[in-house]
């Protein structure tokens, strides 16, 4: 690591805290947008941008957003996984900018799964 100054120490702390919010048990949910090559070409980046924009608009800081690699179902990209503490993770498929905002409002914030978009809950397929 490079030598720190007080400013860079603080900046590093802020960045690390954002990454580790879930470890502290502080965030109400984590949303992972799958950003493999296939995901990006299918529009995952736009989905991510829309999600981050919506969070900012709503003034929500305790939802961790991250990206990960391909979820292994390239035909159903863009995909995202939503996890609320103590609940099964839910994978959503065929997302777009509008759908992700609905997932945010209804599932992440509201707590009820958006069944139409859900691909699977845990390892079991939904519906």
């Amino acid at each position: 690591m490079a030598r720190l100054s007080v400013q860079s120490l603080n900046a590093l702390r802020d960045q690390l805290q954002a990454e580790r919010a879930g470890r502290e048990g502080k965030c109400r949910a984590t949303v992972i947008v799958h950003m493999g090559t296939c995901g990006i070409s299918a529009g995952a980046r736009q989905v991510m941008t829309a999600l981050l924009g919506a969070l900012e608009e709503r003034g929500i800081a305790d939802v961790a957003v991250s990206s990960s690699g391909c979820a292994g179902m390239c035909s159903r990209e863009p995909m995202a996984t939503v996890q609320r503490p103590g609940e099964a993770p839910v994978k959503y498929a065929d997302l777009d900018e509008k759908k992700i905002v609905r997932v945010l409002d209804e599932h992440v914030i509201g707590g009820s799964i958006v069944k139409e978009y859900a691909l699977a809950m845990g390892s079991e397929r939904a519906g």
């Binding site: 919010a21 470890r23 502080k26 103590g86 099964a88 993770p89 809950m121 845990g122 390892s123």
Partner: peptide, 29 residues
């Protein structure tokens, strides 16, 4: 397990496959 706050004890390596499937995949402690 965070952020859930679930505390597991006296785990053995052979308990893990079931635990990963139940808790990590299905969200059931």
């Amino acid at each position: 397990v965070q952020p859930d706050g679930i505390f597991y004890q006296q785990l053995r390596p052979r308990d893990i496959p079931h635990l990963v499937e139940e808790h990590l995949l299905k969200g059931r402690p």
